[in-house]
Computed example of a mutant assay.
Amino acid sequence: DGPLARLRDRNQLDRADKARNFALAQAGEKYRECFFRAGLDPLRTLDPSQEVKSAFSPNGLWRCESQIENLQKFRAAREAIPEDFREPLAAIVLEDREIVDVGREIGAYKDAKMAGAVALFILRRGLTALARHYRLISPTGAV
């Protein structure tokens, strides 16, 4: 159970609407799935914004077409997230970092409640953008 699953289970992604809470969590899981299926591991051995280097695979080739397809899906989803929200969302969803730690890094708050609130706000906005991209929610936000 990572931070995203705990937030989903506690209905903290959207306290008022359980369906939307689930849709936001599902968007995060789809994003993570594309990340791993593209061959991008949590150790950041491959930067998705750069071309593939020969050290990753012989002759700089991808191992299979599905990796290329998932990399394209990952990049498209990443572009759908507002730029200011990308890194905090990636830290929580892809790296399984705790929201309090991420909040302390991006905000000026040392208090755990305030840091967590800042990170949760950013995570919700980023997941909303992803859910719209994946068409899990409508552009108006309805599930």
Results as ranks from 00 to 15, higher is better:
1 D>G: 06
1 D>S: 07
1 D>A: 11
2 G>K: 10
2 G>E: 13
4 L>N: 03
5 A>Q: 10
5 A>F: 11
6 R>V: 03
7 L>V: 01
10 R>D: 03
10 R>V: 01
11 N>F: 13
12 Q>K: 15
12 Q>N: 11
16 A>C: 01
16 A>D: 15
16 A>E: 14
17 D>S: 03
17 D>F: 06
18 K>S: 14
18 K>E: 13
20 R>E: 06
20 R>L: 15
20 R>Y: 14
23 A>K: 05
23 A>G: 01
24 L>G: 09
25 A>C: 09
25 A>I: 12
25 A>N: 05
26 Q>S: 08
26 Q>G: 01
26 Q>T: 14
28 G>M: 09
29 E>W: 11
30 K>W: 07
31 Y>T: 01
32 R>N: 02
33 E>M: 14
34 C>H: 09
36 F>R: 02
36 F>K: 00
38 A>M: 08
40 L>S: 08
42 P>E: 10
45 T>V: 07
46 L>F: 05
46 L>Y: 06
48 P>F: 15
48 P>M: 12
49 S>W: 08
49 S>M: 11
50 Q>K: 04
50 Q>H: 05
52 V>I: 15
53 K>I: 00
54 S>R: 12
55 A>M: 06
57 S>G: 03
59 N>I: 02
59 N>F: 12
59 N>P: 00
59 N>M: 07
61 L>G: 04
62 W>K: 02
63 R>N: 04
63 R>S: 01
64 C>M: 03
64 C>L: 02
64 C>T: 08
65 E>P: 04
67 Q>F: 11
68 I>E: 08
68 I>V: 12
69 E>G: 01
70 N>L: 05
72 Q>V: 06
73 K>N: 12
74 F>D: 05
74 F>A: 10
75 R>C: 09
75 R>T: 07
78 R>F: 07
79 E>V: 09
79 E>Y: 02
79 E>L: 12
80 A>N: 06
84 D>I: 08
85 F>W: 04
86 R>S: 04
86 R>I: 02
86 R>M: 02
88 P>A: 01
90 A>W: 00
91 A>F: 08
91 A>M: 15
92 I>C: 09
92 I>R: 07
93 V>R: 14
96 D>Y: 11
98 E>F: 07
99 I>S: 06
99 I>C: 05
100 V>N: 10
102 V>N: 08
102 V>Y: 02
102 V>S: 03
104 R>T: 01
105 E>T: 07
106 I>T: 02
109 Y>C: 15
109 Y>V: 03
110 K>I: 07
112 A>T: 13
112 A>I: 02
112 A>H: 05
112 A>W: 03
114 M>C: 06
114 M>F: 07
115 A>W: 13
115 A>V: 05
118 V>M: 10
118 V>S: 05
118 V>T: 12
119 A>Y: 00
120 L>I: 03
121 F>A: 14
123 L>H: 02
123 L>M: 02
124 R>A: 03
124 R>K: 15
124 R>S: 03
125 R>K: 13
126 G>I: 06
127 L>E: 04
128 T>Y: 06
129 A>G: 06
131 A>N: 13
131 A>K: 14
134 Y>I: 01
142 A>W: 09
142 A>L: 15
